[in-house]
Simulated scan of single mutants.
Amino acid sequence: MTKLKIAIQKSGRLNEDSLKLLKDCGISIDNGKDQLKASARNFPVEVLYLRNGDIPQYLRDGVVDVAILGENTLVEKGEELEIIERLGFSKCRVSLAVPKEFEYTGIQDLNGKRIATSYPNTVEKYLKEQGITAELHIINGSVEIAPNIGLADAICDIVSSGSTLFKNGLKEAVQMSVSEAVLTAGPNLSADKKAILDTIQFRIQSVLRGQNSKYILLNAPNDKVESIIDILPGMRSPTVLPLAEKGWSSIHTVVLGKSKFWDIIEELKARGAEGILVVPIEKMVL
């Protein structure tokens, strides 16, 4: 039977979130401690646990068919590989950082400086676009220590909260790009494997829609219903049901996206909505 080989990071948060996503898609992985390869019990998938930086080459070579990895790694080592789906977790930024005492005023301050990084291709491309020449020191591992030991004047690394920079006496100078976990595929998938991937992507999209949406139930006087419906974004249109209490209705709808959620809730209250219930959605299938 044809199986789709999926690469995920061997350890760390990207590993945990990737396995959770597969589980949410109904794919049960039998993996033990320190196991480098595992098969799904209920789906034609095999998971390989690999070093993040090695995954792009394995995709090119056909060792694995698809992968969940950080976009920053894809930009650095597999820019020609296609992003199939943005997954919304493991968000970070790729930034240049300098010591706190460095009087940074602009990117021109790094001209002629030494920069330590694990992302030489990313840094080189960015500096070239900015017309800056710098000496790159490639370090595999923790680069934050480089300025403290005199190896570099600045670093380029991924930044989440910025706490690691702070602990090492550094400050973020330039945000070069943002990154998140992405689903990508190798260049030569067979028709059978493409069909399996299409099914997985359909499930992933349903999970992501559910994560970014809320189901809302509320009560409202009948004379306020039209005003309330006017501000409710939904998949089609809200469901309006009469309540046992005369002159009142119950309105049900789905609010898509998180950015304006609280603004909508506050406006609903202002327009007469009462008893508002907000329910998480596990999956949303269109």
Score class of each variant (00 low, 15 high):
S90Y: 08
K37P: 10
I276D: 00
K113Q: 13
V225K: 04
S142F: 00
A244F: 08
S249N: 14
Y58H: 10
R51K: 13
L151K: 12
K10I: 05
K37Q: 12
G162W: 04
I145E: 09
L241C: 08
E226H: 11
F89M: 09
A152I: 06
I139K: 15
D198L: 01
D30Y: 09
L19T: 14
F89W: 00
I138P: 13
V94T: 15
I264D: 00
P99L: 06
V278F: 01
L243S: 07
S237G: 15
D34H: 02
L217V: 06
E266I: 03
L286N: 05
N148Q: 10
G78H: 08
L81W: 11
V98A: 02
E85C: 01
D34L: 00
L243M: 13
E101Y: 03
I27W: 04
G210R: 08
V174E: 00
K33M: 14
A244V: 13
S11K: 14
Q57F: 01
S11I: 15
E129R: 07
A191S: 11
L241S: 15
I229L: 14
V47K: 00
N188D: 12
K5P: 14
A67G: 09
K269Q: 05
I229M: 14
A191Y: 04
L151T: 12
L218Q: 06
T133C: 01
I29P: 06
T133R: 13
M235S: 15
L14M: 07
E101Q: 09
V45G: 10
R86G: 08
N222S: 10
G131F: 00
E76T: 13
T133Q: 12
T122M: 13
H252F: 11
R203Y: 01
S163Q: 12
N52Q: 11
E129C: 04
I107H: 01
L4A: 10
K171P: 05
A195N: 11
S90I: 12
A146P: 12
L208D: 03
G210I: 12
I83F: 06
S18Q: 03
Q108L: 02
V255W: 03
I139V: 10
K128N: 13
A191N: 09
Q211C: 05
V123M: 07
D263Y: 05
W248P: 10
L87E: 05
G88I: 12
L243F: 04
C92W: 04
V63L: 14
I276V: 04
P238M: 07
I228S: 04
G162E: 05
K214Y: 11
I83C: 12
A181D: 00
K20I: 10
D192P: 00
A7T: 08
S250Q: 15
K224R: 13
E180Y: 03
R271W: 00
K100P: 02
D223V: 13
